[in-house]
């Protein structure tokens, strides 16, 4: 039963990008089309599950002081593997994701789960946690991607669904539309789940133990001077 909970918490309750507000860069950047969201989401899920397995197996071997560089190298290895695979078998997705595929390496969801979960738990819960978080992330990407694609180009997964006489609002597939749609989605989630308003920032970032005190110092620094 508790295994089930590890899996489902990532889908809605602790959804990495809608509730925890992590991994904003890919959520905004590649969601101009729903199909990109699926590609990016599943690639991230794969990397997340693999890195969770390896980190949870190596948690006693990796020295505490160099754990972040070690995690980053493990993640970068899997990212390289995924991008080579996509390049070989799904070249369309590879070219539409472009640079953002390599940037999965520095996605804070993956480092966050490594730091918060995989380094403290056994292998099987870590796999389920990675799978749940990854699918939750995919869900958000597809949701934001669908909204932007439908309003911005009148299509969904490349199939025209809006009637001819409705002119698509190109604004939605421009960067400004990305910020706007994600803002609306997070507001809707806050409203439905009756969450307390959260600010994007370091005070609720799960990685804040990873960069010791740097965030708070950076946020408060302006006030002290």
């Amino acid at each position: 039963m508790s295994y089930m909970k590890e899996f489902t918490k990532g889908l809605i309750k602790e959804n990495p990008s809608m509730v925890m507000l992590l991994g904003m860069c890919p959520t905004l950047a590649i969601t101009t089309m729903a199909s990109n969201g699926v590609g990016m989401g599943l690639s991230t899920t794969f990397v997340l599950v693999c890195s969770n397995i390896v980190i949870s197996l190596l948690k006693k071997i990796i020295p505490d002081t160099v754990r972040l560089p070690a995690y980053i190298v493990i993640v970068a290895g899997f990212v390289t593997f995924v991008s080579l695979m996509l390049q070989a078998f799904l070249p369309d997705i590879y070219s539409s994701l472009g640079m953002y595929l390599s940037l999965i390496t520095v996605n804070c969801i993956i480092l966050g789960r490594a730091e918060m979960f995989a380094s403290k738990n056994k292998v099987i819960p870590s796999i389920l946690d990675g799978l749940g978080m990854g699918l939750g992330f995919t869900l958000t990407l597809v949701l934001v991607g669908s909204l932007r694609e439908i309003f911005g180009s009148g299509q969904w997964f490349g199939i025209t669904i809006m009637p001819e006489f409705l002119e698509p609002m190109t604004l939605f597939i421009l960067p400004a539309g990305g910020f706007f749609v994600l803002g609306v989605v997070i507001a809707a989630v806050n409203r439905i789940m009756k969450k307390k308003p959260r600010e994007i920032g370091c005070h609720n970032c799960p990685n804040k133990d990873g960069c010791p005190g740097a965030c708070e110092k950076a946020e408060n620094n302006g006030g002290e001077q």
Binding site: L21, L171, A176, G177, F179, F180, G183, V184, E199
Partner: peptide, 20 residues
């Protein structure tokens, strides 16, 4: 409902619009 992250993102959207 818009307090916190949502309004920040919407403000970012408008700044981004200016950069277009």
């Amino acid at each position: 409902a818009l307090r916190g992250a949502p309004i920040t993102l919407m403000a970012a959207s408008i700044v981004s619009l200016a950069f277009i």
